[in-house]
Measured scan of single mutants.
Amino acid sequence: SKGEELFTGVVPILVELDGDVNGHKFSVSGEGEGDATYGKLTLKFICTTGKLPVPWPTLVTTLSYGVQCFSRYPDHMKQHDFFKSAMPEGYVQERTIFFKDDGNYKTRAEVKFEGDTLVNRIELKGIDFKEDGNILGHKLEYNYNSHNVYIMADKQKNGIKVNFKIRHNIEDGSVQLADHYQQNTPIGDGPVLLPDNHYLSTQSALSKDPNEKRDHMVLLEFVTAAGITHGMDELYK
């Protein structure tokens, strides 16, 4: 796709999030870079409003799984890469995230190029959380598991539907599940690639910047598309 050509090198990323969870309002600002050749993201996020009212790991899918245009699609799968094909005009990404036995996040993001920078601007609203639950009670460990993110075409809306389940580790050794339902639709009216069913395999590492006084998260992530085999004719070339 034409959009794919915008991702040949390292691309700067800007992320802006405004959130409200159970009436606790907050903002997060992030910057870093993405390299789609390797499916690599390096980002640093800062809570610009003081202390973040929710655990950082609960925002990873909104912040970095928010820029799935940096996923590495192998050559034989490039015609299934909706995310890059929607660029530079970008796409709207909407999600509902259900935390098992707790509340939910609803998010709406616009992901697009502004100049040479890929920008992810998000509004997040969280409701029905227990004040002493795993999320508002800050009981999650500061780490992140690997996940597969399942993608299918949504021809009606000229976009994709995505769903997956995140496993958050809790300090007591148990797990907090979070079910994600995602819809992506193009902002522009140019042609986009509608994929066959496949998935993104994601690995994320969270860390801290020892010199950063503000509440923050440093993230390194690798994302690769998989799940579609080479056609038989490919094998015999």
Score class of each variant (00 low, 15 high):
residue 31 E to D: 11
residue 58 T to S: 14
residue 102 D to N: 02
residue 46 I to L: 09
residue 112 K to N: 10
residue 4 E to V: 10
residue 5 E to K: 13
residue 73 Y to F: 03
residue 232 M to A: 14
residue 121 R to L: 05
residue 141 E to D: 14
residue 115 G to A: 03
residue 197 N to I: 09
residue 127 I to M: 14
residue 95 R to C: 01
residue 48 T to S: 06
residue 27 S to G: 08
residue 63 L to M: 09
residue 29 S to P: 00
residue 231 G to R: 10
residue 123 E to K: 12
residue 21 V to I: 10
residue 100 K to M: 08
residue 81 D to V: 00
residue 130 K to T: 07
residue 54 V to E: 01
residue 7 F to Y: 05
residue 79 Q to R: 13
residue 183 Q to R: 13
residue 37 T to A: 12
residue 87 M to A: 06
residue 4 E to G: 11
residue 18 D to V: 12
residue 95 R to H: 00
residue 158 N to Y: 06
residue 87 M to I: 05
residue 94 E to V: 05
residue 98 F to L: 11
residue 12 P to S: 01
residue 31 E to K: 13
residue 33 E to K: 09
residue 144 Y to L: 15
residue 66 G to C: 00
residue 128 D to E: 05
residue 229 T to S: 13
residue 156 Q to P: 09
residue 35 D to V: 05
residue 171 E to A: 08
residue 139 K to Q: 09
residue 187 I to F: 08
residue 154 D to N: 13
residue 41 L to Q: 01
residue 62 T to I: 02
residue 16 E to A: 07
residue 142 Y to H: 07
residue 101 D to G: 10
residue 78 K to R: 13
residue 16 E to V: 09
residue 43 L to Q: 01
residue 87 M to K: 00
residue 225 A to S: 05
residue 147 H to L: 03
residue 74 P to S: 08
residue 145 N to T: 14
residue 197 N to K: 09
residue 13 I to F: 02
residue 155 K to I: 04
residue 218 V to A: 04
residue 13 I to T: 02
residue 27 S to T: 13
residue 45 F to L: 10
residue 199 Y to N: 06
residue 209 D to G: 01
residue 68 Q to P: 03
residue 38 Y to C: 14
residue 147 H to N: 12
residue 142 Y to S: 06
residue 99 F to Y: 05
residue 111 V to A: 04
residue 221 E to G: 01
residue 184 N to S: 10
residue 21 V to G: 00
residue 104 N to K: 11
residue 126 G to S: 02
residue 40 K to T: 04
residue 180 H to R: 00
residue 202 T to A: 07
residue 204 S to P: 01
residue 54 V to G: 00
residue 50 G to R: 01
residue 153 A to T: 13
residue 109 A to D: 00
residue 162 V to G: 08
residue 155 K to M: 09
residue 137 G to R: 11
residue 129 F to Y: 03
residue 104 N to D: 04
residue 25 K to E: 05
residue 88 P to H: 09
residue 190 G to A: 03
residue 124 L to R: 00
residue 107 T to A: 06
residue 83 F to L: 07
residue 192 V to M: 12
residue 169 N to H: 09
residue 146 S to N: 12
residue 79 Q to P: 10
residue 169 N to K: 11
residue 202 T to S: 03
residue 232 M to I: 15
residue 35 D to N: 08
residue 189 D to A: 06
residue 77 M to L: 09
residue 182 Q to L: 00
residue 27 S to R: 13
residue 58 T to I: 02
residue 38 Y to H: 14
residue 26 F to V: 06
residue 160 I to F: 02
residue 115 G to C: 06
residue 33 E to V: 11
residue 110 E to G: 04
residue 52 L to R: 02
residue 21 V to A: 02
residue 182 Q to R: 00
residue 149 V to A: 07
residue 97 I to T: 02
residue 233 D to Y: 15
residue 128 D to N: 09
residue 84 K to R: 02
residue 206 L to P: 03
residue 8 T to A: 12
residue 92 V to G: 03
residue 129 F to V: 03
residue 86 A to P: 04
residue 204 S to F: 01
residue 81 D to N: 05
residue 163 N to T: 15
residue 24 H to L: 08
residue 68 Q to H: 05
residue 5 E to V: 12
residue 109 A to T: 01
residue 46 I to S: 02
residue 110 E to V: 14
residue 77 M to I: 07
residue 35 D to G: 02
residue 132 D to H: 07
residue 211 N to S: 10
residue 194 L to M: 14
residue 196 D to E: 10
residue 63 L to P: 00
residue 100 K to R: 10
residue 136 L to Q: 04
residue 144 Y to F: 11
residue 186 P to S: 13
residue 76 H to Q: 05
residue 234 E to G: 12
residue 155 K to Q: 09
residue 39 G to D: 00
residue 86 A to T: 12
residue 187 I to L: 14
residue 145 N to S: 11
residue 84 K to M: 02
residue 38 Y to S: 15
residue 7 F to C: 10
residue 167 R to G: 15
residue 13 I to L: 10
residue 93 Q to P: 01
residue 181 Y to F: 12
residue 91 Y to H: 01
residue 231 G to A: 15
residue 179 D to V: 04
residue 101 D to N: 07
residue 187 I to T: 09
residue 60 V to A: 03
residue 163 N to I: 08
residue 174 S to T: 15
residue 71 S to N: 02
residue 210 P to A: 09
residue 166 I to T: 09
residue 235 L to R: 11
